[in-house]
Design a protein around this nucleic acid. Structure first.
Length: 809
DNA sequence: CAGTGAGCGAGCTTCCGCTTGACTT
């Protein structure tokens, strides 16, 4: 039996460390925190100086039992959780829950998983830092108080099951405010002038040169006046300036930068990146993927250097120590890097391969030399005009780190000016082939994508590497924000072209404002954010986390007791909660748009029980109001009077067919026609507002035709098996489970025996619909959320039902 | 599967930060 028990947080880490330590040491994992505040109720004893009520979580019972058993048998227990606030708390919880004794317990820390680092840690143990533990308790209790006191206010004032918290509410606020900035934005136009010059080089060969005027014009008249002057002007090279420039590599990856680059370069979602990284970590291919540190171990620096030398030569090496700039970083781990720098590629899924390669390149590049560039600008003067044209170009003199890696940026800058410029000399005369003044518009601020929201949160010091991905999921699951696309809009712009002494004036069209996979606030997100910022401005403040972090630091330094700090907060916060519950109105985000011209009654929009709606009339009036749901792409915040009025044109009647009325409406699954109790979906190409009687009949007949051809044959007693035509071709169904028919088989000749054979050959057909099948990460996630949503929706009904029947009896 | 916009009023929902689970056949 080993004399020493070492406890770390992660099992993969335990495996690695065990190898370094030899037979006297057994290394086990706590799998993160082992206990937490009680889940029922608030879990804090307010009567007893905020005493936290800790409970071992059900899924940790076994882990704790195993650890307790091993700790009883060990001579010395080494608590080796991470060296940060949470890690210190884990060590303390272990100490308490395993009932360890001071004399045979040691607290050790290391922030790189190398043999030297671990042996050094073993030689220099310390005690548990109780002040740091207290800082964590304050953090934990504060988050519980904020979350569990604010959420119920939302249930009462807005809608049940909503949530609020120190991190998520601010994340939603960022998205809401960006959306409003975009709505309020009005594009400003100016005129940018480009000249296309021609000249001849020494050999008499024609060269082309594009140059931009260093001034932009606010109005068309000014641009026109400038072009007029150019008609008679002479163009000559005034000066040529060449400047050396440098580009430096980006630091190695942290969780947040990995998420950003994987999104930009590989198109991964934030959670996808984390899942793939987790697999690489568990396979021992990369270091820990939840980190805020850009630091590399000496070992990694050494092997990177060797790798660069063998790959590109000594000249390309430049060892760098990066320092973390982000707020609140705790740096318990290394940066994310390959475990072995000499492994350039890895096997595994294509996602794993691509992410690994990205990490390898970024790490290697971070230790490579700067790239050296030469930037050249040619200034061209126009006779009779003060401003000059300038052509700029860039030449790479030494590629350095660019040999392997270049960081991407979010904004699409035109990569025009990295071209090589032709050789020219001062005073050289140029001929302007064409001068173009083009109207350009200022850009709207971009919406956040998942990864850029993470970057913003990190910048504000809100959230931790382990919570970025879950936070992004939470605000989407609560339906505060939605990931979506925005179709481009057409926009006209003016172009003035001077060519051969004449100015042409034309209008051209461009597409603008297209966005993909961006985060949009929902109406609920808007209402919740407005409500919270009005009543709880302190918590919703972007600096709230940064301020409480300072307070936690003071606790960690022993300057203030954690309970005093919490008391100070609670005494201020709780009365506001009470007051808000008592004195605030129910929030429905109502906007009054005007008066319905037909009825003279008020037209308004608000959030109803089932989502955003438009309403004509009010409940106070004798006549009941009429309602219409908003379409998915509409928002109570931005819908116009006309658009809202339009919604009441449905349902409308589209004439009669077979003596029955056809009604056109929009349901949960899109526009449809109802006729004689049956539903017929409207194809996307048809506008529900003006489907003619003829067209409606056509749609109904088409659907009937498909229905008629649906059944190929019915087999077995009482039609046990049905062979049908589906969207993806023929299939058959039994007990609501669908089975495939091989392409080589003719479905019309299928017998009962054939089908039974096929059923036996497809054993997983019945389980396929379950959410945890072998589906892609994205579909699994959607399926999982759906089941939980239906679960919660079904629960109250199921419970309410027996009550009703009981009463009736 | 296909709108509803809540009469009687039970009991539920919720936070952030550590870390990976996965019954049989």
């Amino acid at each position: 039996m080993p004399k020493n028990l070492v406890i770390v947080e992660s099992p993969a880490k335990a495996k690695t460390i065990e190898k370094f330590l030899g037979n006297d040491y057994q290394v086990m994992s706590s799998f993160g925190h082992i206990r937490d505040l009680a889940e029922k109720g608030i879990g804090i004893d307010f009567e007893n100086n905020y005493e936290p009520q800790y409970v071992v979580s059900t899924d940790k019972k076994k882990t704790v039992a195993d650890l307790r058993k091993a700790s009883k048998e060990a001579e010395i227990v080494w608590l080796a959780s991470d060296e940060d606030r949470e890690g210190e708390a884990i060590a303390w919880h272990l100490y308490e829950e395993l009932k360890l004794k001071k004399e045979n317990t040691r607290r050790i820390v290391f922030h790189e998983i190398t043999k030297d680092a671990i042996l050094h840690a073993i030689k220099t143990p310390r005690d548990i830092d109780i002040n740091l533990v207290d800082a964590q308790q304050a953090r934990r209790v504060l988050d519980r108080i904020v979350g569990f006191e604010l959420s119920p206010v939302l249930w009462r004032k807005i809608r049940p099951s909503l949530s609020a918290g120190r991190v998520q509410s601010v994340a939603v606020r960022l998205i809401v405010e960006r959306e409003r900035e975009i709505n309020q934005f009005s594009a400003e136009a100016n005129y940018r002038v480009n000249a296309f010059f021609i000249s001849k080089d020494i050999n008499g060969k024609q060269i082309d040169l594009k140059a931009e005027l260093q001034q932009r014009f606010a109005t068309k008249a000014e641009a026109q006046a400038f072009l007029e002057k150019c008609k008679e002007a002479q163009f000559s090279v005034d000066s040529i300036v060449t400047k050396p420039a440098k580009k430096s590599p980006a630091p190695p990856f942290t969780t947040s930068t990995l998420q950003q680059e994987a999104a930009r370069k590989l198109g991964f979602s934030v959670s996808q990146t984390m899942q793939v990284a987790q697999r690489l970590y568990e396979a021992g291919k990369i270091t820990y993927m939840r980190t805020d540190s850009v630091n590399l171990s000496d070992l990694a620096l050494g092997t990177s250097k060797a790798e660069i030398i063998s790959m590109a030569g000594e000249r390309y090496v430049q060892i760098r120590k990066f320092t973390t700039k982000s707020k609140g970083a705790q740096e318990a781990h290394e940066a994310i890097r390959p475990t072995y720098m000499n492994t350039h590629k890895t096997d595994g899924t294509s996602q794993e391969k691509r992410l690994y390669e990205l990490i390898w390149k970024r790490t290697i590049a971070s230790q490579m030399a700067d790239a050296e560039l030469e930037k050249t600008s040619i200034y061209i003067s126009v006779s009779g005009v003060k401003n000059q044209f300038v052509a700029s170009g860039e030449v790479i003199v030494f590629d350095g780190f660019l040999k392997v890696y270049l960081e991407s940026t979010d904004d699409e800058t035109d990569a025009e000016n990295d071209s090589l410029l032709p050789a020219m000399k001062n005073g050289e005369l140029l001929l302007a082939n064409e001068i173009v003044a083009q109207e350009r518009f200022s850009q709207k601020p971009p919406r956040y994508a998942e990864a850029s929201l993470v970057r913003k949160l990190e910048e504000l010091g809100i959230g931790r590497p382990s919570t970025y991905a879950p936070t992004i999921s939470t605000i989407q699951n609560r339906l505060y924000v939605e990931k979506g696309d925005r179709e481009p809009e057409k926009r006209n712009f003016n172009v003035l072209t001077l060519k051969a002494g004449k100015i042409a004036d034309e209008i051209k069209t461009e597409n603008t404002g297209a966005e993909k996979s961006k985060l949009f606030p929902t109406d609920i997100g808007l209402v919740v954010t407005d409500f919270l910022t009005e009543y709880f401005p302190d918590v919703l403040n972007y600096n709230f986390t940064a301020d409480v972090e300072k307070e936690f630091d003071n606790i960690a330094d022993g300057e203030i007791k954690w309970t005093e700090s919490i008391d100070k907060f609670y005494k201020k916060f709780h009365p506001i909660v009470e007051d808000t519950l008592k004195n605030s109105e129910r929030q429905v985000g109502e906007r009054i748009l005007g008066v319905d011209p037909k009825s003279g009654r008020q037209l308004s929009v608000k959030i109803g029980k089932y989502g955003p709606l438009a309403q004509i009339g009010t409940v106070e009036e004798e006549e009941k109001p009429s309602f219409a749901s908003l379409r998915r792409d509409q928002s109570i915040e931005s819908i116009s009077f006309e658009e809202a009025l339009e919604l009441f044109k449905l349902p409308r009647e589209a004439g009669e067919f077979e003596g029955k009325v056809m009604t056109v409406a929009i349901g949960r699954f899109g526009p449809y026609i109802r006729h004689d109790g049956a539903f017929y979906s409207l194809p996307k190409t048809d506008d529900p507002m003006d489907v003619s009687t003829e067209r409606a009949i056509e749609i109904i007949e088409e659907k009937r035709e498909v229905e008629k051809n649906r059944v190929i044959q019915i087999l077995g007693n009482d039609g046990e098996i049905q062979v049908l035509n589906g969207r993806f071709g023929p299939y058959f169904t039994r007990d609501k489970v669908n089975y495939k028919i091989p392409k080589t088989t003719d479905p019309t000749t299928l017998t009962l025996e054939n089908c039974l054979e096929l059923i036996a050959a497809q054993p997983d057909a019945a389980t396929k619909k379950k959410p945890f099948g072998k589906k892609s990460a994205a579909t699994t996630k959607v399926a999982a959320t759906k089941t939980s949503a239906t679960k919660t929706a079904a629960k109250p009904k199921a419970k309410a039902k027996p009550k009703v029947t009981a009463k009736k009896k």
